[in-house]
């Protein structure tokens, strides 16, 4: 089992819940979506999976070992975890902190301690794979919204993570870029990677996922099951506020 969440809750400092007793598990190679309306706790859940936030109650296990602030402090387990799990933020701007696109993509591999030629190979490989070679020397925050999203995904892919977590990746993309993203995700999935995607755009769900976790507006799990079944269940989608009345 890749991820195992047991009764995970997350409270803000003011005491209100972002997530309440969520239990779920994610297997190696799963294609999962996290569905939920705005403010239902999707981003918090993903951040907990990526070890950026830690549950205020309950436990998260990654490959059988407990994820905690303490366990991620030790250099070794942190290294294994960070290179196995890649995270694509909802706000692309926040994620791009390097001076050029090339440096942005090289950041991860350099952290992995790869040699210069290997870093070069990885960066050019991904630039080619995503078709963004022409952006290599541009400063990331001067790109268009779609280009930024591509660069963000590229910067995570150069680390070759086993798990790819994407927070609202379709947000603000035009139809052609959406198709591009779906195809890219499919390629990554067929390469054997696990993907966890948070979204509230239902039309892409059957293309990129087999399994869905639905969060309600009370920050609890409404249903976990096959994506196809859940998409059929209109009353459920309505109560999760994913479709209008």
């Amino acid at each position: 089992m890749l991820f195992d969440l047991r009764n995970v809750s997350y409270r803000y400092p003011d005491g209100s819940f972002a997530l309440e007793s969520v239990s779920a598990s994610i297997e190696n190679g799963d294609r999962t979506v996290v569905l939920g309306a705005n403010g239902s706790g999707k981003s918090t859940l993903l951040r907990i999976l990526d070890g950026l936030l830690f549950p205020t109650d309950g436990e998260v296990y990654f490959q059988g070992s407990l994820l905690s602030e303490h366990s991620l402090k030790s250099v070794d387990s942190s290294s294994t975890f960070r290179q196995s799990v890649g995270f694509v933020f909802q706000n692309a701007d926040a994620q791009l902190f390097n001076a050029t696109v090339f440096e942005e993509l090289a950041f991860g591999p350099v952290q992995l301690g790869l040699s210069k030629t290997e870093v070069q190979e990885r960066v050019t490989g991904i630039l080619g794979f995503l078709g963004i070679g022409h952006l290599s020397d541009r400063p990331p925050f001067r790109l268009s919204g779609g280009e930024k999203r591509k660069v963000v995904i590229a910067s995570v892919l150069t680390m070759n993570p086993e798990v790819l977590i994407l927070d609202e990746p379709f947000l603000g993309l035009d139809p052609r870029s959406q198709t591009w993203l779906v195809n890219t995700l499919k390629q990554i999935q067929s390469a054997g990677k696990t993907t966890i995607v948070a979204t509230h755009s239902l039309e892409t769900v059957p293309l990129i996922a087999d399994k869905a976790i639905v969060l309600g507006e009370d920050h609890r799990v409404l249903r976990i099951g096959s994506a196809a079944d859940i998409l059929e269940d209109l009353p459920l989608l309505r109560s999760a506020n994913l479709i209008g009345d």
Binding site: D50, L52, R82, G86, F87, Q95, F107, G108
Partner: peptide, 8 residues
């Protein structure tokens, strides 16, 4: 964002 890509 950096933490999530920081290995070690």
């Amino acid at each position: 964002a950096r933490t999530s890509r920081q290995v070690g």
